[in-house]
């Protein structure tokens, strides 16, 4: 892997990105939210190529603890690739990923998960054959991290009453009681997305990567999901990075957004500012004015 790209390369952003950055600085959490100086997640100059295709080109972003940040852009912009680089499913060709002050690019997926990075998937990934409750219980047990083969062999591997309780509560707060003992294959897509979310939340992640959580959901399900996200933010203080095409949902959830296009970060800042940015309109939204209703 290529060595770290420093802040000097980071400075070589395009003029569009520079323009957007200047609008964004006012909204930077470090300056605006007063949550302390160190961001929870820092992505610096990440580059990823697939053969001849430049999927990510010198992309940088930050998420502060407890902050919800949107990541938008047209299909194929590289949003999921960026998620994969943060969560470890892919390793960037260049650049660094820093989580809570610790460099994590190069770490395998499971270790990043143990540090507190949870995620959901654009193409839903449930444990086939397991019931909703079991899906959450696996995650709950992993959170405790004290499951060992030898403990199982001594018949000490059964979940404790607290763990069962915790899972029950999560099932309840997601409104999944009716399907709690149904296998993953037999539930609807909307419920499946909630289960994925619950599986991540049970682990109390510090950062949650949400990859198009409302895709394939009807408007009722989307509303329910948005409500859950609000509760999560309020009660758990989880930081979130949200990839989403539904701009209403983005507007309701985030403090600011980053815009990716063809693997390049072309703008960042509060949603309204970004949507009125010329570069964003030209590259992503077309020429017609567009704002969340």
């Amino acid at each position: 892997m290529t060595e770290v790209t420093s802040t000097s390369t980071q400075a070589k952003e395009t003029s569009a990105a520079d323009a957007a950055d200047s609008t964004a600085t006012a909204a930077r959490p470090s300056a605006g939210s007063g949550r302390g100086s160190r961001p929870l997640l820092e992505v610096r100059g990440v580059t990823k190529r697939f053969g001849g295709i430049q999927a990510l080109s010198n992309v940088s972003l930050e998420v502060a603890p407890g902050e919800t940040v949107g990541l938008i852009g047209p299909n194929g912009a590289g949003k999921t690739t960026l998620f994969d680089c943060v969560n470890g499913l892919m390793h960037p060709d260049a650049g660094t990923v820093i989580f809570d002050g610790q460099r994590i690019d190069g770490m395998p997926v499971y270790r990043r998960a143990r540090l507190g990075i949870g995620r959901t998937f654009q193409k839903i990934e449930l444990f086939a054959g397991a019931t909703v409750r079991e899906q959450l219980m696996v995650a709950e047990r992993e959170k405790r991290g004290d499951g060992r083969l030898w403990k199982d062999l001594l018949w000490r591997g059964a979940p404790s009453p607290e763990e069962v309780d915790e899972v029950d509560q999560m099932v309840k707060s997601l409104g999944l009681e009716d399907v709690a003992d149904t296998p993953a294959e037999a539930i609807s897509l909307g419920q499946g997305r909630l289960v994925e979310l619950g599986r991540a939340l049970v682990q109390r992640p510090r950062l949650l990567l949400l990859d198009e959580p409302s895709s394939g959901l009807d408007s009722n399900e989307t509303t329910a999901l948005a409500a859950v996200l609000t509760v999560v933010r309020r009660d758990f203080g989880t930081a979130m990075l949200l990839v989403e095409h539904d701009l209403d949902m983005v507007a309701a959830a985030v403090t600011r957004v980053y815009v990716l296009d063809f693997g390049r970060m072309i703008a960042s800042g509060p949603l309204d500012d970004v949507l009125s940015d010329d570069a964003v309109r030209a590259a992503y939204l077309g020429q017609a004015p567009l704002a969340p209703s």
């Binding site: 990934e125 079991e134 994925e196």
Partner: peptide, 19 residues
Amino acid sequence: GTTGRQLAALRGSELAAAS
């Protein structure tokens, strides 16, 4: 035990299990 749950998870989706 835990290992059985982990195995069931891995069988279901290795991607999600690692995550």
